[in-house]
Design a binder for these strands. Structure first.
Lengths: 220, 220, 220, 220
DNA sequence: AATGAATGAGACTTCATTCAT
DNA sequence: CATGAATGAAGTCTCATTCAT
């Protein structure tokens, strides 16, 4: 737990999360690109439309991003890092292992944190999820950056709860999978279905049901 | 629930599932299209590559399908029907309501049946899932054809098990969601992760863990 | 002398010289390309202008030639072959070794033959000469196809005249170089300078002077 | 013949030959431009690459040269002057008419002088030769500045040798052409072919052969 | 029914040039 | 003087679709 974060991740986090160094136009280009990519998908998006929405000349895009693909990467790579930021930052990491007495507490914290993130980054997540299957480099990155890191951290936390006898005697990966499935099912349904007009979605109730389900399902 | 299936669905099932009426070339076109769409995504696929792989002239595609979009629909619509075929076919429907004594039995049957389907139709499912977000007509179709129908049928079955006191007192939709999440998590992990070389995936164990998880989580 | 011509050369000669298999539009494209390339140089020529002059849509060019470069090659490669055709064709080859009693006769024949060729293919030659320095593949081709073949044949003929004591005792390559320089100087001056209005170019006299110069310069 | 050199030529000679007045950046731009133009040809060269190689900003080029074309001219015009400098400079001019007893001596001096020049200015010459055909203003300049001047001077010298009975009774222009052809053939072969690895080019022998050829060919 | 040449709109990208800093 | 971000015209090339054969 005490080993330092790899410097390149630290760096990317800085560079990616804050768009500080970007010029105004650059930021507008990226924002338009996020819009358009999320709406139509990368392949069906045209740089001319992105330029138009950003209010810049098409050539300007290519001054900042050598290719359309690079523009995509400039969006996806930081997003993948943001997705796992809580697992990487030192302060949070310590929190992970210490602050939660019960698995339930931990679950609630995770859901709240990531749900907030997801709500604020719907388009970004959509782009990542949509494009992942078609770009092997992204997949590589995803496995290396997201899966491995997250798994690493979660194994520690969940291992602890399991050792304390709070959880059933299942492989840690299985516990992660089952918990994650239920949470994602909740989040996805909520996102897709819960926002429809006239939908009878009682968020509080569903959240409780989901957590209850996980806790019962994983009880020793 | 004893009303007849809508005739147009019946028709589509016939037309879509059996590619009987297709000429040889037509079938080859559709098969190539499935390949290419699954590989590159609809927008990034070119009709000329599809024609090439199908061994037909470029123009031939447009003799059978007015537009590229229509070719996509000719793949997606039947697939969506195939996805819910078990819920629609009369014989199966009766089975649903009668054959299973326990929810666990029912779950096992569903998993086995749909897993088989998924394994035989990976590319098709991939296309549907990938394209759904970008084509409102498809979404419409999906909701109308898949969600509504499945929900309708499942509510009966699950309502029965719930009435029998086998399941916790949760809204039927919630039960469906939680069960489906866990199953899909299992299937997805198995598909993406279980086939990697050197992966330590014990299918039997994971399946049992998943079913156990659901049953415990949903126990009254 | 009696060994067969390499089949690939034979083939290229057929394909390149006769534009038989070309469709009408293809021929028009190539002809326009020759015009434009010769006028402006390859790099400064635009496919859109070529298309316009050919009276076809721009896309049509790329149906017949994958890239602009391929269009260039489709012009240059056959031209290089045409440049040395006399040295390759069997009938001519035999002629080379037998028909000429004196080096002077041989020179006159060569000049006449190649001058005719040059007059009919000014643009083509111009393109080859202009582009050669910028395309390594063309240089490779030029050395392999033109230099080597021509040298091979000329060495035989000139070796014979030298053996007969008609020529000075110089390396055959030197004789070739000196003769070629004088001829090319004649041809070039004639082409560039001789066609100007008011130029005092007496072609007959200059030709005689050139041949006289070579013969005297190379006399034993 | 004793009339002064046209002042504008004098001026250009000063300005072009010495790059004295240029700032450091300006000189670096011109040098990079020479490199790139020689490598890729004018039309295929980009000002951005030139700027990069020169280590200056893109805009800087256009502070010193209004257009890309002007940059080309700033290279080509002085080069054309340098090509004929020996014929223009007063001191050299006198030398021309007095110092050489034989045409052979004169030839040797010219070859040595111009060969040295060519070796030190390969890229420049390449650019001039390559671009001449595509820029009518350059052609104009070339005829006016190079051809006319050189012809003027050479006619005097060669006229003298001819009057002395050293040379055959041919038009002076013909003598020039024949001599120049042989020399250029020598220089070109030497440049292109003589530097290849494994080439059996004996420079001394070829030079002698060439001079011998010219002298014999032009003997009275 | 099948072909494949032809199209022209539009895709991504490059580039010479301008201008505020 | 120098910079480099910005531009928009133009470049090469792709693609869905049409149509005469």
């Amino acid at each position: 737990m005490s080993e330092a974060i790899e410097p390149w991740i630290e760096e990317l986090l800085q560079a990616g999360l804050g768009r500080d160094k970007m010029t105004d136009k650059q930021r507008r280009i990226v924002e338009s690109a996020i819009e358009v990519f999320a709406e139509k998908g990368y392949a069906a998006s045209s740089t001319s439309e992105i330029a138009q929405r950003a209010g810049v000349a098409e050539g300007t895009i290519f001054r900042h991003f050598k290719t359309k693909k690079e523009l995509l990467l400039s969006i996806v790579t930081p997003t993948m890092l943001k997705m796992i930021a809580p697992f990487l930052l030192r302060e949070f990491r310590d929190v992970l292992t210490q602050d939660y007495d019960s698995y339930e507490q931990f679950l609630r914290a995770m859901i709240e944190n990531r749900l907030l993130f997801l709500q604020k980054n719907k388009s970004l997540i959509k782009i990542v999820v949509q494009e992942l299957p078609f770009h092997p480099e992204l997949q590589e990155q995803f496995v290396q950056v997201v899966l491995v890191k997250v798994k690493e951290r979660l194994e520690i936390v969940i291992g602890k709860f399991k050792a304390e006898g709070q959880l059933a005697d299942l492989p840690v990966m299985t516990i992660i999978r089952l918990s994650a499935s239920a949470i994602m099912g909740y989040v996805l349904t909520r996102t897709l279905y819960g926002t429809r007009e006239g939908a009878d979605w009682d968020d509080e109730r569903e959240l409780e049901a989901t957590i209850g389900f996980i806790m019962k399902g994983l009880a020793p």
